[in-house]
Design a binder for these strands. Structure first.
Lengths: 186, 186
DNA sequence: GACATTTGATTTACTGGTAAAACACTTGTT
DNA sequence: AACAAGTGTTTTACCAGTAAATCAAATGTC
């Protein structure tokens, strides 16, 4: 949250969102009332991205949890599936944007569940190579279509053309962020 | 993550993003290669939203951490500041979209730090009313402009017109999600 | 007016993540 | 060949959040 407020409106207190639109709009209005001197522009993008992400994640839980997987676990399995080859823990960490320690933990659980297999590198005995087991691969292949269908349904309130625009604009922003963010981290 | 893959590309392995754009585009390409039968459309939106949110949150850490606040703490203080009146723990939980338990914990810390004050309700002795102390208010008012300026800088790679479109499209999506999501939670 | 129900908040037990330290091994230097 | 430095992974200690249980007080019901 934050982004100067992913945190927005619930429902109870002042009775929903009103005509102005989404909850972030309501928050922005509040800020403008108490601090009319500030430029609240950035909130309208960043706040909404955060809030959308939070809601989408909650929503996505449903199909994944049915399969007994957390998001993070599915991401890891997905990385193995989509690259099509073995990955080391370090590579998996980079693929899934998580810390090495987190990957270690997840791998432990997933291999206990028989979804993933380890193989030690023969040259460099520090590194391990991970691959999906048959069961792991089947699981991913079974879930993925459900997941995509569900996501499609979630987005269905926005018409096709707008979806395209949104994807393009987000791609532009993301490209910027990925390129420049490290530099900006002042 | 997930959204069928907020988890994307790092840098090492296959050498960055390539000409195709952001990391999510690269992930989508991988999926299309191994599972050409699937409609990867939703990933382009949901994956990017998740990834943007993750990057933005990392980035936002900077100004807030300087003030010794986590995102969640700032959200809580911000809710008190922008509503302009006292809130109960329950209301704060709704405002910040977090669980009551989480709010209880944060309030404990924030009041220990002297940023927030409690007052018991006289009518209903279960409820408490929270307000910012002078120090809390000053802190929020001091940080907020910095925060907004920082966010502005983060977004500056996208030109003004596109920022407007993006905000509008995200608002539309968010409105849909907020309205319909509970219904969809199958 | 006692008693089940509901509501608001807190506590408890637990989970999953992180940062920093520790390990284990490799690589470069001399 | 020995050893410093570097790299890949795991371990440790810790922290924040959650769900479920608990506590406390209000409210409805008979």
């Amino acid at each position: 949250m934050t982004a100067t407020d992913g945190g927005a409106r619930g429902g109870a207190g002042n009775g929903g969102t009103g005509p102005g639109g989404d909850t972030v709009a309501a928050v922005v209005r509040q800020w403008r009332t108490v601090r009319p001197d500030l430029d609240t522009g950035p909130m309208e993008i960043i706040g909404r991205i955060n809030r959308c992400a939070a809601l989408l994640q909650q929503a996505e839980d449903a199909p994944l949890r049915r399969a007994g997987l957390s998001r993070a676990e599915f991401d890891l399995l997905g990385a193995l599936r989509r690259t099509g080859h073995e990955l080391t823990p370090g590579e998996l960490a980079r693929e899934t944007f998580s810390s090495g320690a987190a990957v270690t933990k997840r791998l432990k659980q997933l291999s206990e569940r028989g979804l993933v297999e380890r193989r030690g590198d023969t040259r460099d005995r520090r590194v391990a190579h991970l691959r999906l087991t048959e069961a792991g691969r089947d699981l991913v292949d079974g879930i993925l279509p459900e997941q995509l269908a569900y996501e499609s349904a979630v987005l269905s309130g926005v018409d096709g053309a707008r979806q395209g625009e949104l994807a393009a604009l987000l791609g532009g922003l993301l490209g910027q962020l990925e390129g420049r963010l490290d530099a900006l981290r002042a």
